[in-house]
């Protein structure tokens, strides 16, 4: 029971980290942007929220498989992403990415623009302004997005099953272990694992609520 939990924590943590890096970058690019091009980028980032996991899993499988150009190139570098825990990280990162991006974008857009205007007239470079003004002031929303991404990555199932399979100890994350236990008729194990995952999700959601409540109070 602890092996799928540890694996899930590791996959979710790495996914949340990757989604955080990508999501904060994208959010800072997208903030205050209008126009068809940016709407399109925004739409593509948000696709995992609406696409069925099977479609996402299928896309990942055909792009990362050893038979694809990208997959074979990665393979030549010694990186195998299909049916490895790395594949689970890729799937969970992509699914978690829009959650960080949306939350971080809202937080970044809520930073008053006069502060950024003043910082610009004071001669500081855009990246310095982002790191010293925008991010410190948007931090709560960004963090809430990362925690949400972690929770979502912890619960990722469909695309992960397709890209990483169900290999105990290697790709069998908590949700997949639950699926396996149900399929094998091991209801006691399924119950335990489900309870574990539900408790983790509740703890994470409560911490997000605490974070976002602070935002609205300040």
């Amino acid at each position: 029971m602890t092996i799928p939990l540890l694996l899930s924590l590791r996959v979710a943590a790495l996914s949340a980290l990757l989604a955080a890096i990508g999501g904060i970058t994208l959010a800072s690019l997208l903030a205050h942007k209008q126009g068809l091009f940016w709407h399109l980028i925004d739409g593509i980032i948000n696709l995992p929220l609406v696409l069925p996991p099977t479609v996402l899993g299928y896309y990942l499988l055909i792009t990362l498989s050893q038979r694809s150009p990208l997959g074979s190139w990665l393979g030549s570098l010694g990186i195998h992403l299909t049916f490895t825990w790395g594949g689970a990280v890729v799937a969970a990162s992509i699914v978690a990415l829009p959650l960080v991006t949306q939350s971080a974008r809202a937080a970044i857009e809520s930073v008053p623009s006069e502060l950024l205007d003043v910082a610009r007239t004071l001669g500081r470079a855009p990246l310095a302004i982002f790191l010293t003004i925008t991010l410190p002031l948007a931090w709560r929303g960004v963090l809430a997005g990362i925690v949400l991404a972690f929770a979502r990555a912890l619960g990722e199932f469909g695309a992960t099953l397709m890209i990483a399979g169900n290999i105990p100890g290697q790709t069998q994350t908590l949700p997949i272990a639950i699926y396996d236990a149900v399929q094998a008729g091991e209801s006691a194990r399924a119950n335990q694992l489900s309870l574990l995952l539900t408790s983790a999700a509740i703890v994470l959601l409560v911490s997000i609520r605490m974070l976002t409540n602070r935002i609205s109070r300040t």
């Binding site: 008053p112 006069e114 502060l115 205007d117 003043v118 610009r120 007239t121 004071l122 001669g123 500081r124 470079a125």
Partner: peptide, 15 residues
């Protein structure tokens, strides 16, 4: 860019 103009800017609410 504003960074290179060397002007001090004080907006209405001071920011």
């Amino acid at each position: 860019p504003p960074q290179k103009r060397n002007l001090g800017y004080v907006p209405q609410n001071y920011a």
